[in-house]
Each structure stands twice: as C-alpha cells, then as structure tokens.
Amino acid sequence: MTDLAVQFTGVTKQYKHFTLQNVNLELATGSIMGFVGANGAGKSTTIRILMGLIHQDSGAVKVLGHDMPADQAAAKRDIGFVSEDMRLYGPATVAWHMEFIRSIYPQWDKLYAEDLLRRFDIKKEQKVKGLSHGQRVKAALLLALARRPRLLVLDEPTTGLDPVARREVLAELTAVLADENRTILFSSHNTLDVEQISDQITFIDRGSIIDSANKEIFLDGWRRLRLMLPPNTPLPQLPGVVEVGGSNRLPVLTISHFDPAMVAACQQAGASVQAVDPMTLEEIFVVNVQNRREKAIA
C-alpha cells in the first residue's frame, strides 16, 4: 500500500457560476505534484478545500491522515501553506514574523531559517512593506519552509518572480524532497517549472480534473506525428487524436495516448511517418484546453 499525503474522493463544490465536479486526487508521500490549469479552472478552490478554508459540499478529503475539514487543526500543524494573496504584516520586520511563527510551531528550525535568509538574500531587519514582490514571496516561503512541515501547499509560488529568485525557489523545493517523508503540492501556470520539478502532474479545466498522472508517463503519452500522404489517400484513423493540423498531403496529428504501434498502422494505411515529436507540457496544456473549449462550443 502506498502512503498518501493527500486524497480527494468525489469532491464537489458548487458556486453560482462555477462548479468543482467530482474531484479525485491522490498524492503519494515523498513526491511533488504540479497542479496545472488556466485561470479560473479551479486550482485555488481545490487548494482551499484541501486546507479546510472552504468546505466541500460532498466527497471526502484526507490530508496527512486527517479528515478535512473536521480535523483541520491537527492537520495544519504539519502543513505549510503559501498563497499569492497571503499577507504579512507591513509594519513588522521579517525577524518579527520569524519569531511569531517560531512561537506557534515548536518544530521551527532556527538554523535552516538563517540559512534560507542568506540564500534568499533577505535581511531580517527589513520591514515587510519595504520588500519587493519577489522578496515577499520568498519571505512567506521561508516562514513555511523553516517549520519543516510534512506537506507544503503552494499556490503559484513562482508567479511574478525574476529568473534568479525562481531558480532559488525551485532549488529549495527540490531540496525539501531529499527527505522522502515530505510532500509538496503546488499550483502554477508556469509549465516549465511544473515540467522540471514535478513527479506527478494534475490538469484541471473548468472545475474537472482532466488528467492526473506520473509526469514521465504523461509526457510520453503525447506526441506530434508528422505524416506524408500519397495523393488522394485518406488520413489513417488512429485512436486518441486530439488535433489534426498541417495540410492535406502533410498532416500533423496531435495524439494524447501515443503507442509506437501507431507508426506501423500509419505506414500500413499508406502514409509515411516523417517525424514523431515529443511535446512540452506547455504545448500539451494549450492543445488540451483549446480542444475542450472547442468541444464545449460545438
């Protein structure tokens, strides 16, 4: 049996203009999940339910073995949460915040906190209102990391960071996973970050989970096939074709569940396969969302 840090079973939440539908999620302890979706897809709603900040209408949520929202106080002792709209106190210094968190969480790691100050290039004597956006994000992350929580939940941790700060944050997140008892769930629309550091990728669109899979398996499933057809030859019929582009003689197929046997099937149908290209998460994301929107309109 695998040990799950997060488990959603049939979770639903209805709003007037948005519904989170039947969300099922499993995140194994010791891994990083990247949560990907367009703006308004339901990422933040899902994360808030996970944190017990809003309550689901139906379905079960288990976090670190605790039922949410019923058992949220116990769960939160071991969860570090950083979101975009999280406010630190402007007039107070970073040091004040560190002391405040330390007084609440006995597992606060002082040495690690000092180390992070240095690596994130933050002066603890500085008042929060004098910090740049990037420094604020890093300060909030520091406050969560130095508690050494078993689960880190990060809503858009790299949004608005400059390339150097982004790199520092990503390095710190992967370093957390050196300890295999710790787990991270983070949402992002920076697909490069997700592609780089996640073990598992979960795609959400319009309140539904479209896909949740091991990253390597997920990326392996998507391929772009460039074909060359003899004149007046119909396009070979393949399963899992999400998009057909290119021209009549030189079609380009985007496939969501690629299997090497498809190449042979194309050749048998008279087509010659010019290339089988892997796709980046960004390309997959765009094709996936556009395709679903077109279907919804049709």
Binding site: T174, L177, E180, Q196, I197, S198, D199, Q200, E216
Partner: peptide
C-alpha cells in the same frame, strides 16, 4: 536518485527513469 534530483533541481521521477 534523490541526491541527484536535488543537485539537478529536477523531479525524482525523472532521475529515477
């Protein structure tokens, strides 16, 4: 695998593969 993943800043699953 985990050490390599930290050093390269890539996911464990990628190094494992």
């Amino acid at each position: 695998i985990r050490m390599m993943s930290v050093a390269l800043r890539v996911s464990v699953i990628t190094v494992k593969r």
